[in-house]
Design a protein around this nucleic acid. Structure first.
Lengths: 135, 135
DNA sequence: TAGACTACACTACAATCTCAAGCACACCAG
DNA sequence: CTGGTGTGCTTGAGATTGTAGTGTAGTCTA
């Protein structure tokens, strides 16, 4: 499927993980604080529940996210980053840094580029400062 | 559809770019120096030419990679990172850093051979099984 | 009491990625 | 000169992945 690692390079492995669709968005949303499933889905914006569940399962298996089932039947779960997950802040940070220094065409104005479509952006930039999220 | 972008940030945009399959691998391989098409394909390892061509086209359009056609008919092209592309080293580096601090199962097969040195802190990323850059 | 909400399983369908082959030409061995 | 290999890149079939939509059991709100 994915790359059959020619070598067990942790970097290669991590790229393989982070390059999966929505993973970085999920981590970014989760850096903002723990969230429930649907809450997270809304925060990420545009991901569908099937994909989100799959990504969370893998992220949990990789030890990036920890899942806490608070109540089974009134479904209430809480996803939050583990230490390793929080450490990903550095990666997001590097991306944010690159983005700001490289892309200069983003003026936060609604200028739809040709052929390019901006997706969603529920949160501005997930940094220590938490937007007014009800939590 | 369901996605409504009231404010899209460059970070989100960059994540969308970097999260595409193979993009990070390509950038990583290209950080090692300029390469030709097939050479790059081999360096990345496991990507097929169709996907690689598509990724390179997008990367070029985004201003990350520059393509130099040296001779049309004896096909010889050179892909290399632009300034913005080289700046991605920071991102790769952050990932490498996270990988090293988080995953530690790389000691299985990627053990440093004789005379070889393992990745040290703050070292540019280079995979252990990389082809010896014969160029 | 009706409706909304919770987290997820399930199915059918679309988008994407991959494999394999091929093109047009240059270079080198024979 | 002929054949084989290498180059960059395209095309078409096929596998893999992501998606929308719906349903479930129970609780919370109006």
């Amino acid at each position: 499927m994915t790359v059959d690692d020619h070598a067990f390079c942790p970097v290669h492995d991590s790229i393989d993980l982070l390059q999966e669709k929505w993973v970085l968005h999920i981590v970014r949303a989760l850096l903002d604080g723990p969230r429930g499933f649907n809450e997270l889905s809304r925060a990420v914006g545009g991901v569908n529940t099937t994909t989100l569940a799959a990504r969370l399962e893998r992220l949990e298996r990789e030890g990036v996210v920890s899942k806490t089932v608070e109540s089974t039947m009134p479904p209430r779960t809480r996803y939050e980053l583990t230490e390793g997950g929080v450490a990903l802040q550095g990666v997001i940070d590097a991306i944010a840094d690159w983005a700001r220094s490289h892309l200069k065409r983003c003026a936060t104005a609604a200028s739809p580029g040709p052929g390019e479509e901006a997706h969603d952006a529920a949160t501005p930039v997930a940094f220590p400062a938490a937007p007014p999220t009800a939590r």
